[in-house]
Design a protein around this nucleic acid. Structure first.
Lengths: 148, 148
DNA sequence: AAAATGAATGAATATTTATACATAGTATAC
DNA sequence: GTATACTATGTATAAATATTCATTCATTTT
């Protein structure tokens, strides 16, 4: 399924140097995901990945929306991330929930039903349990979350 | 000449939405610069321009090195920029010269001979008077300098 | 000044990426 | 359930971009 594959793509380009759609297809293949170049092209567009020129050829990286800008400022604001049914609960340090929420909305807004932030807690509502699991994973990546 | 054309490219992509090499070639043509797609491709690579996907197609913008990251933090630190022969003098607010220098080195390091920063003044040395003029222009763009 | 060296560029071409169209899959309404 | 509508995907192809090779320009060396 799409969300799943795109999440995998984000992880892949973060870990290795992907220079072409073909390389990405191979990498996905190794994780058991089989797709064609056309699909990868669309994924890259939707994820707004960007190809940055460097010495040994251009490389794909996440741009604005996802990682870079957004997550950055609040990377160390998240204390815990957990899920229950179709909700994802993010615990932050005091006062940071709002910023984290804004970041999440910005990055994943179109994939969630909505979110509510208190002072140190953010609640994300998704359409289904499955999506909640995937969103959880995405949020973890977004904030570079190392915990369980 | 190259440096000149690339400077022009930076200005163009900042002002209008350039989606393909061809569009860039046209835009350059209107300014009296005539080149082929191959050259533009190389320029884009050297300038490390990046194509960002958006609703109405992808658009080229300057990435890391140039504008975005670098210039940003010090955009309001520059008070004046002037040139004399092969040197460019940048006056900054007290204590900011070092940061501005780092930014310049990072963005244009390979096009200048070197730079020396004091507390509120940065001196950039170039190989020739011509280059100094072009670098001056680039520094202006880098810091979004509005003055004379 | 001629020769030698290296950068810049263009023409032709290879490679990579995007898209039009058709089909399959999924959910929603009836 | 079947029909309807919408999304996702693949295939084939068009479009865009990168690169190889040859040539021209400018600079330095002899």
């Amino acid at each position: 399924m799409k969300l799943n594959r795109q999440t995998e793509i984000l992880r892949i380009i973060k870990e290795q140097s992907i220079k072409t759609h073909e390389e990405l297809i191979d990498a996905l293949g190794k994780v058991g995901i089989k797709v064609t170049q056309a699909t990868v092209s669309r994924d890259i567009k939707e994820l707004r990945l960007v190809k940055i020129p460097s010495k040994d050829g251009s490389v794909y990286v996440a741009s604005q929306t996802e990682d870079n800008v957004s997550g950055g400022a609040f990377k160390n604001s998240v204390k815990a991330i957990s899920r229950a049914l179709n909700t994802v609960v993010v615990r932050t340090y005091p006062g940071m929930a709002g910023g984290v929420a804004a970041t999440v909305d910005n990055a994943l807004g179109d994939k969630i039903l909505g979110s509510i932030a208190g002072d140190d807690t953010l609640l994300i509502i998704t359409a289904s349990e499955t999506e909640a699991m995937q969103i959880t994973e995405r949020v973890r990546m977004l904030f570079d979350y190392k915990g369980v």
